[in-house]
Computed example of a mutant assay.
Amino acid sequence: MAMRSFLYDIQVSLLDMPWPVWRRLMVPSTITFKKFHEAIQIAMGWQSYHLFEFKYGPLTISLPDEDFVVDDTHFDARWKKLSSLNLASSDVMSYLYDFGDNWVHLIHVKGVRPLEHRQMTVRCTGGEGACPPEDVGGPYGYEQFLQTIYDSEDPEANHLLDWAGGTFDPWAFDRNQVNEEMAQRFKK
Rank of each mutant, 00 (worst) to 15 (best):
A43S: 10
E53F: 02
H105R: 06
T73E: 14
D91W: 05
E116D: 05
F75N: 09
Q47C: 08
F52Q: 00
P20Q: 12
D65K: 09
K80L: 08
G57T: 11
L96H: 05
M26Q: 06
V109M: 00
S89F: 09
F33Q: 09
R23E: 04
R78M: 06
A43C: 04
I31G: 02
L96Q: 07
L51M: 15
I40E: 09
Q41F: 06
Q47F: 02
W22A: 10
L115K: 11
A43T: 11
Y95K: 01
L85A: 10
R78W: 09
P114Y: 01
E38V: 03
V109W: 03
L63H: 12
M17L: 07
Y95F: 11
D67F: 14
Q47N: 14
L63R: 10
K55Q: 14
V104I: 14
K35W: 11
P58H: 07
Q47V: 00
P18Q: 08
S94D: 01
S48P: 00
S90Q: 12
T32F: 00
D72H: 13
L87M: 14
F36M: 07
G111A: 15
L51Q: 09
Y95Q: 04
W103P: 03
D67W: 15
E38I: 00
R113H: 09
A39S: 13
V104N: 03
E66I: 15
V69Q: 13
T60D: 13
W103R: 01
S48T: 11
H105V: 04
F99N: 10
M26C: 01
H108C: 10
D67M: 15
R118W: 00
I61S: 02
R24E: 07
Y95V: 11
D65E: 08
S48Y: 04
H74Y: 12
L96M: 03
Y95P: 05
F33R: 10
L82H: 04
N102C: 14
Y49S: 13
E66A: 12
L87E: 01
W79I: 14
E38F: 02
T30Y: 00
G57K: 12
M44G: 07
N86M: 13
D91P: 02
S90M: 11
V69K: 10
R78Q: 15
S62E: 12
H74K: 10
V21M: 11
Q41G: 03
S94M: 02
K80Q: 11
I107L: 15
D101M: 05
H108S: 13
L25W: 02
V27A: 03
